[in-house]
Design a protein around this nucleic acid. Structure first.
Lengths: 121, 121
DNA sequence: AAACTGTACTATCTGTCATAGTACAGTTAT
DNA sequence: ATAACTGTACTATGACAGATAGTACAGTTT
């Protein structure tokens, strides 16, 4: 499930957060679904329990999951709203990247063609 | 000219690299132009000379500048080609971000509209 | 009661970033 | 030539984030 690159400059706990988000967007993880327990993920990935705990704490802080001591870590019920809101905050980043590419010699048409070619689920 | 945020999680030397790139794309810095000397930038920004040197080394490594001991650090002559090549390598990143937004509930049309609204120089 | 859940805490190690200080090789202007 | 400038290299040091190790605790499930 999770693929961690220990050589990456992106912290392990952040890689877990990012990949969890991706699984949600891909429909692999759905509202109410239970994530692996801290100790399970520890065994699966081969990192320290504290690192997993840090990732789960960050996921909850972002509203993507709800953690309950004794039960587990679950995908939030209102996950689609949370994703939408988070995505809207990323639009400036999208525009900045698009402008960077355009200013570097890539045409608008090329970018638009790329967007249209994307396969949405 | 340069605006450094010491609180940012982005290293200072990388902020210098990023902003130099932006100045080039904006037409503020052009091929052959001389960047401030290491010691000038040290005084302007208020950081260690080693930090500036590290930024200049990275800029040269990326082909954006050419440093000559005794003369200075200059914007590369073939800068537009370098920018174009670098931009092409970033297209997958652009597509990934676009797909993320689409999968989060933002429409393709909205993204395309945003791209079309960008003011290119 | 046993086995599980998430969480909290201290201590320690590591790597990256930035600083401080010094030094050296090459260029420019006087 | 000489002084003042250029980029670069090097060691040493401190600060910080990330990850680990170990232990402990509160709540849930069977």
């Amino acid at each position: 499930m999770f693929t961690i690159d220990m050589q990456s400059r992106i912290p392990v706990f952040e890689q877990i957060v990012i990949q969890t988000e991706e699984f949600i967007r891909a429909g692999i993880l759905n509202p109410g679904d239970k994530l692996p327990s801290v100790r399970e993920l520890t065994a699966m990935i081969g990192v320290n329990p504290n690192t997993i705990s840090k990732a789960y704490g960050e996921l909850e802080r972002r509203g993507l999951t709800v953690s309950v001591t004794g039960k587990g870590c679950f995908i939030a019920k209102n996950i689609s709203d949370v994703l939408k809101t988070a995505a809207e905050k990323k639009i400036p980043e999208f525009e900045k990247l698009a402008k960077e590419l355009i200013d570097s010699g890539i045409t608008k048409d090329e970018l638009i063609r790329r967007v249209n070619s994307l396969v949405s689920q």
